[in-house]
Amino acid sequence: MENKLIIIAYCVYLPIALGLTYYVAKTLFKNAKVFMLDIFHGKENIAYATNRLFEIGFYLMNLGFALLILKINVSQYNPFETYQKLIETLSYKIGGFSIYLGVMLFLNLLLFFRGRRKSKQGDKKKFVPPIQPVATQK
């Protein structure tokens, strides 16, 4: 019974965690293209390449974390024998992973905002204002 329940838990957890990561990464980086084009002043090749690199990093980090927290600890003090325990463990893992993904998403969004601000600041430095005629006071 115990082994069967653990296998059920893994079979539920893995598709949900992997599918959630895929969906979040797809949505985030589809919308990040606008940011990247803004940051790199509309140069498409470097903007899309940077976007892709960010996406790969996001996948690596989140899939790694999803697999890292897969293991269910079972001992004689912590038996895994009822469907109630199955639901509780799964909810803890999936809910925790979902919150983690949300925090990661907001961190990425902050990075994009920061990049946008920095690139705007760079523009301002390059821009040399024309010399204003000084009004002479008499």
Binding site: L28, I87, Y92, G95, Y100
Partner: peptide, 16 residues
């Protein structure tokens, strides 16, 4: 998406 992830995640995690 961020809102969904954090709030649905919290709703699920309270089951514990």
């Amino acid at each position: 998406v961020g809102y969904y992830l954090t709030n649905v995640g919290y709703a699920i995690i309270t089951v514990k």
